[in-house]
C-alpha cells in the first residue's frame, strides 16, 4: 500500500532552496491540499519577492508574480475579477510584514476572500540574512551583528496577534514546520484556511514558522529544533481567530 507519494501538482524541477530549508515542506503541503480538494484547475497563486519568488516554477497552477509586498493587492485584483476561483498568496516575513504591511492589514480588514500563507523565518533569506520584522530579540543577522536590540531595532512584529484584532478576517492561525507533529498540524490548519475561502468566502491567514538553516548558521535539524524551542516563545503556535 502506498502511504506517501510526491504530489503530481509539484512540477519536476528541483527546488532552488538551500539544503534543509523548510519552504519545500510548505510547498508540498500546499500542493497536497490543492490536489486533495480537487481545486487545481480553478486556483490562482500569487508569489512574492523573496526566497519564494520562483514558486511558480514548482506549483503546476496559474500564478502571478507580484512586486515586493503587494501580493495581497494583486490577489485582491484577481479575486474581484474571478470570485469563483481560489486565490492564495505565498509571502515571506519581509514581503508581508515589512514592505507589504499596509496591503496585509487592509486586505485583512476588507475581509477579501483569500488564503494568505505567511512564511516567517525571522530573517531575509534571499538577500543573505538581514534583520526581518520578525527577527527575535538578541538574534544575530547581517544587519544586527550584535543581536537585535530592542532599544535600537525595536521589537518583532506579531502579525497573527495584530490581525486577530480586526473584524475582517475569518481565520488567523500560526503553525510550525519544526517537527513531524508540527508539520501534520500545519497541514490541517492550512487546509482549513483554504476551506474558509472556498466554503465561507472568507479571509484566512496562516503564519508558518519556517527554518533558514543557511542564514541562521545552523544544521537543518538544529534549525527545526530552534523553531520549536526558541522561536515559539516569541511566536506561540495556535489559532488566533476562529
Amino acid at each position: 500500500m502506498r502511504v506517501f507519494e510526491r504530489p503530481k501538482m509539484l512540477k519536476d524541477k528541483v527546488f532552488h532552496y538551500c539544503p534543509g530549508c523548510t519552504h519545500g515542506i510548505v510547498h508540498r503541503l500546499v500542493a497536497e491540499i490543492i490536489e486533495e480538494m480537487e481545486i487545481r484547475e480553478r486556483t490562482v497563486g500569487v508569489c512574492p519577492v523573496g526566497c519564494a519568488v520562483l514558486a511558480y516554477d514548482y506549483l503546476d497552477i496559474d500564478m502571478q508574480e507580484a512586486s515586493h509586498g503587494r501580493a495581497p493587492a494583486v490577489a485582491t485584483g484577481i479575486k474581484r475579477v474571478l470570485p469563483d476561483r481560489v486565490v492564495f498568496t505565498y509571502q515571506g516575513d519581509g514581503d508581508l510584514a515589512a514592505i507589504g504591511m499596509t496591503e496585509t492589514v487592509h486586505t485583512a480588514a476588507r475581509g477579501e476572500p483569500l488564503t494568505v500563507i505567511f512564511i516567517n523565518n525571522a530573517i531575509y533569506g534571499m538577500t543573505n540574512g538581514q534583520m526581518a520584522p520578525t527577527t527575535l530579540l538578541g538574534q544575530r543577522t547581517q544587519t544586527t551583528p550584535y543581536g537585535r536590540n530592542a532599544a535600537k531595532e525595536g521589537y518583532p512584529i506579531k502579525v497573527c496577534e495584530m490581525l486577530a484584532t480586526l473584524d475582517g478576517p475569518s481565520y488567523i492561525a500560526r503553525v510550525s514546520v519544526g517537527s513531524y507533529k508540527s508539520i501534520l498540524n500545519a497541514r490541517k490548519v492550512l487546509r482549513e484556511a483554504f476551506r474558509r475561502q472556498i466554503e465561507e468566502n472568507a479571509y484566512a491567514l496562516v503564519e508558518v514558522l519556517s527554518t533558514c538553516p543557511t542564514n541562521w548558521s545552523m544544521k537543518p535539524r538544529d534549525a527545526m529544533d530552534w523553531i520549536e524551542n526558541e522561536m515559539q516563545e516569541t511566536f506561540p503556535v495556535g489559532i488566533f481567530k476562529e
Partner: peptide, 14 residues
Amino acid sequence: LAAINMVYGAAGAG
C-alpha cells in the same frame, strides 16, 4: 501602490 497592484492582478486575470 495597492491600487496599481490591484490593477495588475485584475489585468492579469483578463
